[in-house]
C-alpha cells in the first residue's frame, strides 16, 4: 500500500516536472477564479458601512468562505466520470470484472492517491498564494479547523462517489458529455462554491438541504468559519458522513448490477 503510494507520488512528481508550465498555470487558474468572486462580493458590499452583514455574512466572512471553497476544491477534484467514460469507450472496462479490486475501489483509490499528492504539490501553493493576495481570515478555532479538515475529506468522498455514479451512465449511453456538464454546473451552484446557501431563494435553500451537493463546499467552509459548534458541529459532520455512506451504497449497488449485466452479456 505504502509502496503503491510512493510509486504513485513519484510518477506524479515526474509528470509535474514534465509539465511545469501547466503546474504554474493551474495555480494561476485557481487564483483567477477566487479573484472573480472576491471582487464581485467586494462590489456587493461597496456601498455598505464597514462590518455590515448581509444574510449573516460580513464581507470578510464571504471572502474567507469563497477562498476556502476553491482551496479545498483543488484537493477533492477528480475526473472519475470522464475516466470511466473513456474506459467504456475503449472497451477496457471489462478487465475490471476479472480483477480482485472493483472498478469503484480502483477509481476512488486512484483518485485518493492523486488528491493526496495534489494536497502537497497543488493545494499547498494555492493556499499560500490566495492567503497572500486576499484578506482571508483564519479558522474560528482549533475545533473548527479540525472539523474543517475532516469535512474536506468527506467532500472528497461525496464528490468522488457522485462522479462514479455519473460515470456509470456511460454504460447505457455513449454521449454523456451533457450529463457530465449538468453535474458540473449543479455542483458549482448547489455546493455553495460560488455563494453561501443563505443567499439562495428560500425554496432553493430548502431543496439543497435534501441534496448531497451542499456538503461538498458549503459544509467545510461553514465549519471553518465556526458556523457550527459543539453538537451542531458534530451534526454537520454526521450529515456529511451520512451522505457519503448513502452514495457509497448507491455506487456499490450500481456497480454490482453492472457487473451482473456485463457477465450475462459475455463482456
Amino acid at each position: 500500500m505504502i509502496r503503491a503510494l510512493t510509486a504513485f507520488a513519484r510518477a506524479g512528481f515526474l509528470r509535474l516536472v514534465a509539465y511545469r508550465l501547466r503546474y504554474v498555470t493551474g495555480i494561476l487558474t485557481y487564483t483567477i477564479n477566487v479573484s472573480v468572486y472576491y471582487f464581485i462580493w467586494r462590489a456587493v458590499y461597496a456601498h455598505a458601512a464597514p462590518g455590515t452583514e448581509l444574510r449573516g455574512y460580513a464581507l470578510s466572512d464571504l471572502v474567507t468562505y469563497v477562498a476556502l471553497g476553491w482551496i479545498i476544491r483543488s484537493f477533492y477534484f477528480n475526473n472519475i466520470d470522464r475516466e470511466i467514460a473513456a474506459l467504456v469507450e475503449e472497451g477496457q472496462v471489462t478487465t475490471y470484472l476479472a480483477r480482485p479490486t472493483s472498478l469503484l475501489q480502483a477509481m476512488t483509490g486512484l483518485a485518493a492517491g492523486e488528491s493526496l499528492f495534489r494536497l502537497a504539490t497543488f493545494t499547498g501553493p494555492i493556499t499560500i498564494v490566495i492567503f497572500l493576495l486576499f484578506p482571508v481570515g483564519g479558522p474560528a478555532g482549533p475545533a473548527a479547523f479540525a472539523a474543517f479538515l475532516a469535512s474536506a475529506v468527506l467532500s472528497f468522498a461525496i464528490f468522488a462517489y457522485l462522479n462514479f455514479l455519473v460515470g456509470m451512465v456511460a454504460f447505457a449511453t455513449r454521449s454523456i458529455a451533457g450529463l457530465i456538464s449538468a453535474k458540473h454546473y449543479t455542483i458549482q451552484l448547489l455546493s455553495g462554491l460560488l455563494m453561501p446557501m443563505a443567499f439562495f431563494p428560500d425554496w432553493l435553500r430548502l431543496a439543497s438541504d435534501f441534496l448531497p451537493f451542499r456538503h461538498i463546499a458549503h459544509t467545510p467552509a461553514a465549519l471553518y468559519l465556526g458556523r457550527a459548534a459543539g453538537p451542531e458541529l458534530l451534526g454537520a459532520l454526521g450529515q456529511q458522513a451520512l451522505w457519503a455512506a448513502i452514495l457509497l451504497v448507491a455506487c456499490r449497488w450500481t456497480w454490482g448490477r453492472m457487473v451482473r449485466r456485463l457477465v450475462i452479456q459475455g463482456g
Binding site: A46, M195, A198
Partner: peptide, 12 residues
Amino acid sequence: LLFHRIPDLGGW
C-alpha cells in the same frame, strides 16, 4: 441568484 438578496453590484 446573486441579485436575489442584494440590491446592487457596486452601483450597477
